[in-house]
Design a protein around this nucleic acid. Structure first.
Length: 917
RNA sequence: GCUCGGAUGGUGGAACAGGUAGACACGCAAGACUUAAAAUUUUGUGACCAUUGUGGUCAUGCGGGUUCAAAUCCCGCUCCGAGUACCA
């Protein structure tokens, strides 16, 4: 009987829906397993074949775990806030909610066709007020918390106020924007406004003047992970650096925990490495340099205190607050000129201009170790936001300082023995110190240690750990995002009362910023709370996705983000599947939110995702035709070198197995209607290459088309068979026939002349062996995410059973269950043909049994000098001597070995016998 | 620049811990079936040499090394990919 996937797939999709097969509830008798996909942003163009890759893998794994007896939570939802809907709204006036809703429906339709086992009752959308109520709620908790460096966790801001009232800032171990010194008396006499400003210095969600990435075209601020090379990732617009008052999250306070936490996670090493680099741990010292003829002190951070005798100048960032205090009178003009120059360049200019610029302040400071005066310079190669925004320059041992010194003709003092610095600096940390007084003769490592001790003993500085990780800027001057639950009373920000959440996004007539440049929410009527104005900015894209996994655990809870009962059962995500592009964005922010909620005792795990797997990208496979220059003649791929040709992208849907469908190509574009073709072997062969899947390259494959032609099961199997899950690979419909054949062969095992025909005979040992060998490989491959090889095992097994004409129930029943995670529809159909009345997913995954895999003889490879020649079988417990003798006899019988005498015979039990001549 | 990956037939890729390199699949070639094509099916398929057959030589980016034995471990290089970048 022909396998009619159209009928069968629809039938079972309806059945699963009707029977609520995938509805999951807490069940204390079963262990939980939480499989999560990174939820999609529903874009207007729908899914292409690359999108479902991760969903298929998670679906297979979730079904597998379910069959293994776990209570599997496998939800899905939508990350609904985003720039494209907003841009579309600005252009068309259509409310982004409508666009988003339409896109979500389209996504759902496409996802449903693939037969996933999501529990749709738990669906969430980040733009739903019922959901973003909790995003706002977490923000309020952050606003009302500070980070205590002593207990290493978030604490209520009221606790901080009590400490300030009692001791001032003296014993305050709190993460802060900048160090403040204040006595309790002084704190008490501050005005309410002043007090609130001081608290802002400590809150985890705080308002601050920071240098931000401003995109003048989008009229909004962007985070570091939202830009690349000075250009916004969404839209590709240039970025400027501006100082603005913004809401920020003090993620930097968690830097150390975020770094340490990585060690116990089962994440890909590359992903962990990216996060480690992004957090950027560096250990060094902070040194105080007194400014000559002034009370000012410059604090600089260095990881190389051993180079202190090589310091020949100091450089501070143009934005450094101390700049006005330092400039000598006579240099006022030239410094101002330079500061203006720096201010007016965009981020892109700064990156593009590798030019060395800077200006001398006319002022000197004193090297705290050797008391030498050192000139202070200003240059934009020093960043205001890292360390203290000032560096000690050691041109002999730092590439950038070297370039600067050469450019402005400043002295260069080497402090390591026997190095050549005539062409470039010597940056590596290997060598013996010279020119360095008490450090002379030490290795760099020893010198770092000794200089550190010296600096601390002399009280001219202290040890310090710096992180590269910056606080997250949390304000966006946009409409389509969660409103911040903040209102202003006399200019002082207060958080909205929790019982008044959610603060719903107001209706506005236009989605653009106002003419005066205020954020779009300024357009809203009555945008107030208790009569006071509400915050105008909205939350960034990562807000809604930072704790969404918790909401799936208890999606309809009106009182809590997640009940402790639900959280105690479902805990955190066991397996999280998604792209590596979220390494420095979503995956860091969620870890931070999660740790914060953990500190507040709202949840019981301090990491959100135990195991992460990154799926590879599916690239497009573009096809080309070759047009002979200035003609309408196209030449086949193999002959193109004989002509002067221009390659042209051709729609991959007009090509099959790289052979062009000429008629369909002619109709594609009126220009080609009368085209001529130079063929090879009667065919027009197209060239091909691997590129990103995109409309402009005509290489987009729509999963709907594949499903229509081959069915969802074949599509699922083929995506997994394409190659290793974590590797990027091009889509190529060419090989799909292999899967079609496999499914047909598999199906035919159950049928004889169009009739379902299964025998109840006892299988032979050989048949059992075939089955159990496959089961062993399949289950271990699923556990290792090696889906392609596990499908190979199915193919081998199917072919072997086909050869044996085996249609025995005991064999096929188990095989069908094993296939169910991959091809749920066909398996469910066959399962019901066996006479079962419940879903196949309520049964148990078959265990393999070693008994059937046992061999009575052991195969030994016989190799000469390591090169394998032939193999011999020996009964299991043959002694080494017997084996040796047998081998020697065997060699003797070979004519061509007559004159050779073995020097040594090495026997590796059960494996190999190597004979050395 | 720094960090992390990777390189295996015509193609996608197998090879668990160093032990038969190329599983499985695509493609290709030849045969069967067919008026023909498609589909199906059988056989072959790393390269080279030899051949009635058994066989032999070379092969996992390049050059070395360790080992009885290396795609796998070590050292050096080439190329490709990813992340990050005046982070002091």
């Amino acid at each position: 009987m022909e396998y009619n996937f159209n009928v069968i797939e629809k039938k079972w999709q309806k059945y699963w829906k009707r029977e609520n097969t995938y509805k999951i509830v807490v069940n204390k008798n079963k262990s939980k397993y939480y499989v999560l996909d990174m939820f999609p942003y529903p874009s207007g163009s729908g899914l292409h074949v690359g999108h479902p890759l991760g969903y298929i893998a998670s679906d297979i794994y979730a079904r597998y775990k379910r069959l293994k007896g776990f209570n599997v939570l496998h939800p899905m939802g939508y990350d609904a806030y985003g720039l494209p809907s907003e841009q579309y709204a600005i252009q068309t006036g259509q409310h982004p909610y409508m666009t988003t809703k339409k896109n979500i429906n389209r996504y759902r339709e496409q996802l449903d066709k693939l037969g996933f086992c999501f529990d749709w009752d738990r669906e969430i959308r980040t733009c739903d007020p019922k959901y973003y109520k909790w995003t706002q709620w977490v923000f309020i908790q952050m606003f009302n918390s500070y980070y205590c460096n002593e207990s290493k966790q978030a604490q209520p801001i009221n606790r901080l106020i009590k400490i300030l009232e009692k001791n001032g800032t003296k014993k305050l171990h709190a993460a802060c924007t900048k160090e403040i010194c204040l006595t309790a008396t002084k704190w008490r006499i501050k005005s309410e406004k002043e007090k609130q400003e001081i608290l802002m210095n400590y809150r985890i969600a705080y308002l601050s003047d920071t240098i931000v990435n401003w995109c003048p075209i989008l009229k909004t601020v962007l985070a570091n992970d939202e830009i690349n090379d000075g250009i916004s990732i969404r839209g590709g617009y240039p970025i400027e650096r501006r100082k603005m008052r913004q809401w920020c999250l003090r993620i930097s306070a968690y830097a150390n925990r975020l770094l340490k936490g990585l060690d116990k996670l089962e994440w890909p090493d590359s992903l962990k490495e990216i996060q480690r680099n992004w957090i950027g741990y560096s250990e060094g010292v902070e040194l105080r340099f007194k400014v000559q003829n002034s009370n000012a002190e410059l604090i600089i951070f260095t990881t190389r205190p051993d180079t202190i005798f090589g310091v020949t100048f100091i450089v501070i960032a143009p934005e450094n607050e101390l700049v006005p205090l330092i400039i000598a009178n006579k240099k006022q003009n030239s410094v101002n000129f330079y500061l203006n120059l720096v201010k007016n360049q965009t981020e892109m200019d700064r990156i593009a201009n590798k030019k060395i610029t800077g200006v001398f302040t006319g002022t000197y400071c004193i090297n705290p170790v050797n008391r030498e005066p050192i000139p202070i310079w200003i240059s934009d190669y020093v960043l205001a936001e890292y360390g203290t925004g000032a560096i000690m320059a050691v041109p002999a041992h730092d590439r950038r300082d070297y370039a600067f010194a050469k450019h402005f003709n400043l002295p260069i003092i080497p402090i390591l023995k026997g190095i050549d610095i005539s062409q470039k600096s010597f940056d590596s940390r290997i060598g013996i110190l010279i020119n360095s007084d008490f450090l002379n003769g030490l290795t760099v490592k020893e010198a770092i240690q000794k200089s550190k001790e010296y600096i601390e003993n002399k009280k001219i500085g202290n040890s310090k750990t710096n992180y590269r990780l910056r606080d997250a800027i949390f304000s966006r001057q946009r409409y389509w995002g969660e409103p911040l639950p903040i209102y202003y009373k006399n200019g002082i920000p207060f958080s909205v009362d929790e019982k008044d959440l959610p603060i719903k996004l107001p209706k506005i007539d236009k989605f653009l910023p106002t003419e005066a440049g205020a954020p779009p929410l300024k357009r809203a009527k009555n945008w107030t709370y208790k009569g006071y104005p509400l915050e105008l900015t909205t939350m960034p894209g990562f807000a809604g996705s930072s704790a969404y996994y918790l909401r799936y655990e208890d999606p309809n809870n009106k009182k809590h983000l997640v009940s402790s009962k639900a959280n105690k059962y479902w805990k955190n995500v066991d397996l999280y599947i998604g792209g590596i592009e979220h390494a420095t964005g979503h995956l860091i922010y969620s870890r931070f939110w999660n740790k914060f909620l953990f500190d507040l005792n709202i949840i019981i795990e301090d990491e959100p995702f135990k195991k992460v797997i990154n799926q590879g990208m599916i690239q497009g496979r573009s096809n080309f035709v070759y047009r002979i220059k200035n003609t309408n003649t196209f030449v086949s791929y193999g002959l193109k070198n004989q002509y002067d040709v221009i390659p042209i992208h051709v729609d991959v849907n007009k090509v099959s197995n790289d052979i062009l469908d000429i008629e369909s190509f002619k109709k594609w574009n009126p220009e080609y209607l009368n085209a001529e073709f130079i063929l090879e072997n009667g065919k027009y062969i197209c060239g091909w290459t691997t590129e990103k899947m995109s409309k402009s390259m005509f290489n987009v494959i729509n999963p709907d088309d594949i499903v229509t032609r081959f069915g969802a099961d074949v599509f699922r199997l083929y995506e997994m068979f394409l190659g290793p899950f974590e590797q990027s690979k091009p889509w190529n419909t060419k090989g799909i026939n292999g899967i079609v054949r496999f499914i047909r062969n598999f199906w035919n095992l159950f049928f004889k002349k169009d009739k379902f025909s299964i025998s109840n005979e006892q299988p032979t040992n050989e048949e059992f062996k075939i089955l159990h060998k496959a089961l062993k490989k399949i289950s271990s491959d699923i556990e290792n995410f090696s889906f392609n090889t596990s499908i190979s095992a199915f193919m081998i097994c199917t072919n072997e059973l086909k050869t044996l004409k085996c249609n025995k129930y005991s064999i096929l029943n188990e095989l069908v269950i094993a296939l169910a995670p991959f091809a749920p529809h066909i398996s469910e159909e066959l399962w019901h043909l066996f006479g079962n009345k419940t879903s196949i997913f309520d049964t148990k995954f078959p265990e393999y049994n070693e008994i059937y895999l046992k061999e009575d003889t052991k195969k030994y490879m016989i190799s000469f000098n390591g090169k394998t020649r032939f193999s011999l079988n020996f009964p299991l417990n043959t002694s080494e001597d017997d084996i040796k003798n047998a081998v020697l006899t065997h060699i003797d019988s070979k004519k061509w070995l007559k004159n050779k005498i073995p020097k040594k015979i090495i026997i590796i039990p059960n494996k190999i016998i190597n004979i050395v001549f």
